Simulated scan of single mutants.
Amino acid sequence: MNTPVSAAAGLATIDAGGVQLADAQLMETMYHDPRTGLRHVERHLRRLARSAAVLGYALRESDVRSRLAQRLSGVGAARVRVRLHRDGGVDVDVFGPPVAPASVSLVLDDEPVDSRDVLLGHKTTLRERYDRRRRRNPGADDVVLVNELGHVTETTIANLAARIDGVWWTPPLSSGCLPGVERSWQLDRGSMRERILTPADVLAAEALAVTSSLKGVLPATLRP
Rank of each mutant, 00 (worst) to 15 (best):
V143N: 01
L149K: 14
S105D: 13
R65G: 09
A69K: 14
Y57R: 13
H122Q: 09
D131T: 07
A77W: 12
G56R: 14
D142K: 11
L84T: 00
D117L: 15
H122R: 15
R127T: 07
V64I: 04
D142M: 08
V80N: 01
D114W: 06
P138R: 02
D63K: 01
L59G: 11
D63C: 03
N137F: 03
V64W: 12
V107E: 00
S51W: 08
A53F: 06
V80A: 00
G74R: 03
S73Q: 13
S62V: 09
L68N: 06
L145W: 01
Y130N: 04
D109K: 04
L68S: 06
D109I: 04
R65P: 05
K123F: 05
R129N: 13
T124A: 00
P98C: 10
Y57T: 05
P101C: 09
H122D: 11
P138I: 01
R116Y: 13
V118W: 12
G96Q: 15
L145E: 07
A52K: 12
V107P: 00
V104P: 00
N137Y: 02
V94D: 01
L120N: 03
R132F: 02
T125Y: 08
S62R: 14
L120V: 05
L59Y: 07
G88T: 14
G96F: 05
V90Q: 03
V118L: 09
A78L: 01
L149W: 09
A140S: 15
G96V: 01
R83P: 03
V82S: 05
F95W: 13
V144D: 00
P112N: 02
D63M: 02
D91G: 09
P101L: 14
P101I: 12
G76Y: 00
S115D: 14
L72M: 09
N137R: 09
A69F: 09
N147P: 00
R134A: 02
L120P: 04
L55R: 08
S103I: 10
N147V: 09
